[in-house]
Amino acid sequence: MDSIIVNKQLKELSKTSISKFVGKIKNIDKYYRFDIGLPRLRLKELIGVPLDIMFNNIYMDYSPAKGLYSLRETISKMFKDERGITYSPEEVLVCCGSLGAIYSALKAILNPGDKVLVPLPAWPTYENLIKINSGQMITIDMDLNKEYLELDIEAVDNAIQGDIKAVIINNPHNPTGMMYSPENIRQIINYACRNNIYVLIDEAYHNIIYDDKVIEKTPYIKHPNILYFRTFSKYYGVPGLRLGYVLGNLETLEAVNTVNHLTVGNIDKITQYVGLNLLTSSNTYFEERVRNYKKWIQKASEIIEISDCGMKILQIKGTYYIFARLPEKLDFVTYCQKLLTKYKTIVLPGSIFGKKYHNYIRLSLTENEDKMLKGLENVVECVVSMKK
């Protein structure tokens, strides 16, 4: 029997390293998990309207292609309040998570072979999103020993002879928890806009920020080449909702909307009304969650530093991640395997986010506090046991 013929592009894609690493583990809920950002929040505790009342008032007809006007209007107002940039509701597109939004944007702007610059370390899904849209990912390793992340986009563009079509900036940054300096963001945006390079600003971790001055000083602007992406998964703690959005200049966004409408289609109205309620409910609950993330990061950093195990912590300014460098002489593969098998504790190897970062691990601090603290003891104890 002949083999099934599938799109050849799919053979070039890889199952994300995170899925490979975690997918093999049985009874995963019995482990101490630091592998993925997985806030487990119950929906009825998050929205200000009882679910039965909200659902009783929803008519299940088609929603507008760009999303419910009331949701887009609320997003527009919120973004202006937070970033000082005015996008009309027509310049907001509701999507299936920020992943769906980034996919549609890349499909809209890339021609076969176009190059997309992705600074490393980076969320590994970017590579597949670029590949499936016939693009080519160009990478550059960033120096993590500074207070802020910095990308010299002009030097990279010159090195590949001015051939960059787009650059992806993730800020706050996964996996490091760091942020780009305001001055560097200014340089990236100015250079990109002068040279007709698209800037895709992935703000998945917007509002999970511990240095407010960074955002206040960051010179974000409105420009046809700039798109801003956000999701409800991180700050609002509802990754299962699969709801995100992108803001951009009307002409650019219409192209993204065309792709989104032909691939994902309209987002269901129930999901959008839940999102609307999350945006319009009191922020005190979510602000408390961010304070907890900050507290947990501080506790985790203290545990690691007090242990004197040789692990190094970066300048964390946002997200709920710690990207920790292990002692140089440690066998990193053996460490992760021992931590998994002996200590029932899951971390992600830094190599998932870029080969140069093989001597790092990423810790996601979203477990309940008691379980998280015990897991952190395991992380440190395993390092100490291997140094003897």
Rank of each mutant, 00 (worst) to 15 (best):
I201H: 05
K115T: 02
K115C: 06
E305T: 11
I28K: 03
L10V: 10
K329I: 03
L117C: 07
L262H: 12
P64D: 12
F323C: 03
A300C: 10
N133I: 05
L247C: 04
E377M: 13
I352A: 04
F353Q: 03
R289T: 03
V333W: 07
D29K: 14
Q337A: 06
I306N: 14
H206A: 13
K355I: 08
K342S: 12
G48H: 03
M54A: 06
H358G: 09
S351P: 05
N158C: 12
V384A: 04
K355H: 11
Y320P: 00
I58F: 11
F286K: 00
H173G: 01
D308V: 06
D370F: 11
Q161N: 11
G375P: 08
Y180H: 14
I267K: 12
N378E: 12
V199K: 04
R40P: 00
K44E: 00
V290E: 00
L253D: 03
P50D: 08
F323N: 09
L10R: 04
C382E: 12
L250T: 13
G97A: 09
K356A: 13
N145Y: 09
I53V: 02
Q161H: 08
M386W: 05
H358W: 07
N145T: 04
N249D: 15
I304W: 11
T334H: 14
E82Y: 08
E302C: 08
Q136E: 14
E328S: 11
I226K: 07
P119A: 02
D268F: 06
E216I: 13
L71K: 07
E369N: 10
S233A: 09
I188G: 09
I189Y: 10
E367P: 08
I209A: 00
K294V: 01
L144T: 06
K295N: 04
N368H: 14
K355M: 09
S88N: 10
V259E: 08
L314M: 10
M386F: 07
N195D: 06
T125D: 07
T345G: 12
N292L: 09
K165N: 07
A155N: 15
Q136A: 12
A65S: 14
Q298F: 05
K234W: 01
E45L: 00
P112M: 01
G237L: 02
L149H: 04
